[in-house]
Design a protein around this nucleic acid. Structure first.
Length: 822
DNA sequence: GAGCATCGGGG
DNA sequence: GTGTACGATGCTC
């Protein structure tokens, strides 16, 4: 039989003659598309019987089951018995093999009701995924299919009826990616109405390929712009172009929630079928909260989702709009155009449309590059969970952990627990336990700080103490028990045998260590991405144990993890103090030591000693030396602020945590002053200079020397103007804009300046275009923007910025006396 | 301050 | 499709 090597990408199934037929779509090694068809795989699930019940009697009963439902025949094909592990117990499990997926739904319910049955297990694992797990197929890796060519209505170069599919190597597909983005006619600002307004342009961007399709003509220098006669043609041409480019991955930014749903609505209007699927099926829109748009065969990636939910933790940006994300990850932004002017240009000024096409294309380019950038992360996760890219990029951490466990379970002969039912979910949500330990910092400025943190603290605790629902308070001799330091509770985990869940997390940790080992000798972006993916997945295990919807949920296990976490970090703190170090700050897994009167080597030796005493996998790592650092007091309590500090690193870079620098609704001048003050304090240690700088800015503000652009405040409208109860300055300005005929609505960013006067602040808010530099109110910017941003920093250093700049209370007092005099 | 509802992203 | 989904934030009582 002929053999073909290929990279699987997508899996689905169809029911034919009461039998499930699997379709594996992918890219052959020669670049052609391939569809592998397999009808030899049967759906199944497991049943456990109560103690004392006869397995043979039950099997006899089950094997005769058959039912007609509508036109479907549902029947049990056969049963098997196998020794399995279920939550640490050895059990005899009955495998119920049925003819088609719908029969699983039917018989799991029927058998679940019988009194001799105690558990129905793994009866909710989707058939296509089950197929991948059981056949050990990992999407995007090289496989070989052996089989004959066959005929089927699919858009594939090879159509093979499989006799055998085998994993060949970890050689990974370099996918062909195409990005797309639409622009729509939108006279109503943020209010998006697909039923009412058309798509005006669509862009496509791929390797050596770019195109913008639009349907109003104008003179242009760009040969990538193609003109068609109307929206319907635009949609048809989009389909054709995607088809002829024939990508493995079609990527968009928020295309699950916007581009595809919008296009679908428009296509329906013209009765155009968006049949992009390799089996000629239409794109499938997700319902309700699940917005995923699926295309059979082709991998549709909504890169926004992946970046926000999987990469989010490591990004600095607070916002996940394309521009912010692209800026951080790629150093490239969206092209700036006046989007509100598109509708007018579309209606009345075609000659103004070209910039919008450039903008449109650039969005696709950004989506393309973002996808390319995070592809190594995606592929690493795909390797771990062995699910199609489509599913993997849309999974939350807990789902990734769960599918990793589900995939590995058969190899360890482990039966997966069921997901919780409604009642137990409610119970689980209400249960809370104690979290991490935070050592409150004493506000102040410190010199020579050494920072250490535990490498993957929680994952290594789980692996080292064999934490899992199966070992929790299980039977084992007293000297085999590891008691968790949970207050007021007797909780232990048996040290042996090493259980499934800790073994799985250990596998991730050691895999990552191997990657990191290679990384030491050569820098490699791919490997860094792999290391990152493995790290976040390992870290997610702890959350998974305590997550209400988990199969392997274990409240006591999660509780034990944080208890041990507190135990270890407190132990380090204590030992540091015993060794004469001053501990400045500690949060969860990190510790900040003052090196006053000590040498760097002392700190390194101290950590070495700590590591000798820790369990094998656990390690306190050196994070860095910082010549100077400042900890600021919290706003409310006045005590040490958690997670609010700035450090000057050895390489002269500054690490800022928890300060407001990035907030959108701060004026540029406020951000600038905060940043500069931190810099002067840390780099030059010259408090007077920092103070003088602030005074200078305050004076410049007073004499209106600061440019208007630096006093503009940005605030986003979150709802309709009328809906605001609190008529704040940004709402007032939005109102003014509306009266001037500028469209505003939810999502519009309002820019305003506060001008001098005695009225309420909201009555003194103006559009930047309405005022000039001499109009803004110095007092407002001094008291409400600049001073609050640096107040705490100076407070730590024993200085009162408000007093020294004679702002705030002072000025209020002055005006009070001024009034009195009159 | 708890409890509920709604954004988020997208033009 | 052997199905189900989060989490931060703002607003109201």
């Amino acid at each position: 039989m002929p053999k073909i090597q290929f990279y699987p990408l997508d899996v689905t199934y169809k029911v034919k003659d009461n039998k499930a037929v699997i379709f594996v779509f992918g890219r052959a090694a020669d670049g052609k598309t391939i569809c592998v068809i397999d009808d030899s795989f049967h759906p199944y699930f497991w049943v456990l019987l109560r103690k004392g019940e006869s397995i043979e009697k039950f099997r006899k009963y089950a094997e005769g089951l058959s039912e007609k439902k509508d036109n479907d025949l549902l029947k049990v094909e056969k049963t098997e018995v196998k020794g399995k592990k279920f939550l640490g117990d050895d059990v005899e499990a009955v495998k119920i093999i049925v003819n088609q997926p719908a029969a699983v739904v039917h018989f799991r319910e029927m058998l679940g009701k019988r009194k001799e049955v105690s558990h129905v297990l793994e009866a909710d694992i989707q058939f296509a995924r089950r197929y991948l797990i059981d056949k050990k197929i990992t999407p995007a890796l090289l496989h070989e299919v052996e089989g004959e060519e066959t005929i089927e209505r699919v858009k594939c170069d090879y159509i093979i009826k499989a006799a055998k599919i085998e994993h060949v190597s970890d050689d990974t597909l370099k996918p062909k990616t195409l990005a797309f983005d639409i622009e729509t006619y939108n006279p109503e600002g943020k209010n998006i109405l697909p039923d009412k307004y058309p798509i005006v342009m669509v862009s496509l961007y791929g390797e050596r390929f770019k195109k913008v399709i639009t349907w109003k003509r104008f003179k242009t220098k760009h040969d990538y712009i193609e003109f068609v006669d109307g929206e319907a043609d635009l949609i048809r041409r989009f389909k054709e172009e995607v088809g002829s480019y024939n990508p493995d991955i079609l990527v968009g930014y928020y295309s699950d929630g916007f581009d595809f749903p919008y296009m679908k609505t428009r296509a329906e209007k013209y009765k155009i079928d968006l049949d992009l699927g390799w089996d000629h099926s239409s794109i499938k829109l997700g319902r309700g909260r699940n917005e995923a748009v699926e295309i059979t065969g082709m991998v549709h990636v909504d890169i926004f989702r992946f970046i926000k939910f999987v990469m989010g933790g490591s990004l600095d940006t607070d916002y996940y709009d394309l521009s912010s994300v692209a800026e951080e990850l790629l150093g490239d932004k969206k092209i700036e155009v006046e989007l509100d002017g598109l509708a007018d240009a579309w209606d009345n000024h075609h000659e103004r449309l070209e910039p919008y096409c450039e903008y449109n294309l650039h969005d696709s380019l950004l989506a393309f590059k973002l996808c390319d950038k995070v592809l190594p992360n995606i592929l690493e996760l795909v390797k771990v969970v062995s699910l199609p890219l489509f599913d993997t990029v849309r999974m939350s951490f807990s789902q990734l952990v769960e599918w990793y466990l589900l995939k590995e379970a058969p190899g360890f002969n482990v039966l997966a627990p069921n997901r919780p039912e409604h009642d137990s979910i409610k119970e689980r949500i209400e249960k809370r336990f104690k979290g991490a330990f935070v050592f409150e910092p004493k506000p102040g400025m410190y010199k020579d700080i050494a920072v250490f943190d535990f490498r993957s603290l929680y994952p290594t605790i789980i692996a080292s103490h064999n934490i899992s629902p199966a070992t929790l308070n299980a039977k084992c001799p007293e000297n085999e028990r590891d008691y968790a330091p949970v207050e007021g509770k007797k909780v232990w985990f048996c040290r042996n045998p090493k259980e499934f869940l800790p073994r799985m997390i250990k596998e991730l940790i050691t895999r990552r260590l191997r990657v990191k080992e290679i990384l030491k000798s050569k820098k490699d972006k791919m490997l860094e991405a792999r290391s990152y993916s493995l790290k976040i997945l390992a870290n997610a295990f702890y959350g998974y144990l305590g997550f209400y919807a988990s199969r392997w949920y274990s409240f006591e296990s999660a509780e034990a993890v944080t208890a041990w976490g507190r135990f270890y970090i407190q132990q380090v703190i204590k030992k540091a103090q015993d060794n004469g170090f001053e501990v400045l700050y500690s949060d969860t897994d990190s510790i900040f030591l003052s090196l006053e009167g000590k040498k760097r080597d002392d700190a390194l030796r101290f950590v070495e000693k700590i590591n000798m005493e820790l369990p094998e996998l656990m390690e306190l790592e050196f994070e860095g030396f910082y010549p100077r650092g400042i900890f600021v007091s919290a706003k409310v309590t006045g005590y040490g602020a958690k997670k609010k500090y700035a450090l000057l690193a050895d390489d002269d870079s500054i690490k800022i945590r928890g300060f407001e620098l990035v907030r959108r609704n701060w004026s540029l001048i406020a951000k600038e002053v905060q940043e500069k003050v931190i810099n002067i304090i840390l780099r030059e240690e010259d408090i007077d200079k920092a103070m003088d700088y602030v005074k200078e800015v305050v004076n410049d503000l007073r004499s209106n020397k600061i440019g208007l652009n630096k006093v503009i405040i940005h605030t986003q409208l979150t709802k309709e103007i009328d809906a605001y109860e609190q008529y704040g300055p940004h709402v007032a300005v939005a109102d003014r804009m509306k009266k001037q005929g500028i469209p505003v609505g939810p999502g519009t960013t309002i820019e305003y300046v506060i001008i001098a006067g005695k009225e309420k602040i909201r009555d003194r808010a103006r559009l930047p275009g309405e005022v000039s530099q001499k109009d803004y109110d110095p007092d407002y910017y001094i008291d409400n923007q600049v001073i609050p941003g640096v107040e705490k920093l100076f407070e730590v250093l024993g200085r009162d910025i408000a007093e020294e700049t004679e702002s705030k209370e002072q000025s209020k007092l002055q005006s009070f006396f001024a009034k009195k005099k009159k």
